[in-house]
């Protein structure tokens, strides 16, 4: 029983570490802000869930486990809000979300069509 829990938590933590790395690579490889947000949300949600769940299995039922759960819930509640704030601010500043990989770095944050996008 002890051993299965240990193995499960090791598997969870290593896959979590792998997802963290993949998200970091994605944040460098993907072409613009909107696509990079997806890589960031990969590390924010999947990796956080896996790593903290893995540590919680190691901690057992204790004060530390409850604190870890609080950290996880807080990360999962605020992560999307921060992502939405970044995406919405980029949209309002006039970065075109439709553009694909062909226009890497072409839009550098000038605010011409900002307010029209909203209406």
């Amino acid at each position: 029983m002890e051993l299965t829990l240990d193995i499960l938590s090791f598997v969870l933590m290593t896959t979590g570490g792998a997802f963290v790395l993949i998200g970091g690579i994605g944040a460098l490889r993907l072409p613009n802000v909107y696509t990079r947000l997806h890589a960031a949300s990969l590390t924010d949600t999947m990796a956080s869930i896996l790593i903290i769940a893995g540590i919680m299995l190691q901690a057992g039922f204790s004060l530390a486990a409850i604190k870890l759960l609080a950290i996880l819930i807080f990360l999962l509640l605020t992560g999307p809000t921060a992502s939405y704030a970044i995406a919405n601010a980029a949209l309002l500043s006039g970065l075109d979300p439709q553009c694909d990989g062909s226009t890497v770095g072409a839009a550098d944050g000038d605010d011409e069509s900002g307010e029209e996008l909203r209406s």
């Binding site: 944040a27 802000v33 970044i86 601010a89 980029a90 970065l95 550098d108 944050g109």
Partner: peptide
């Protein structure tokens, strides 16, 4: 390159 990349 944009400020939003940096905030992200």
């Amino acid at each position: 390159p944009t400020v939003y990349d940096r905030v992200l």
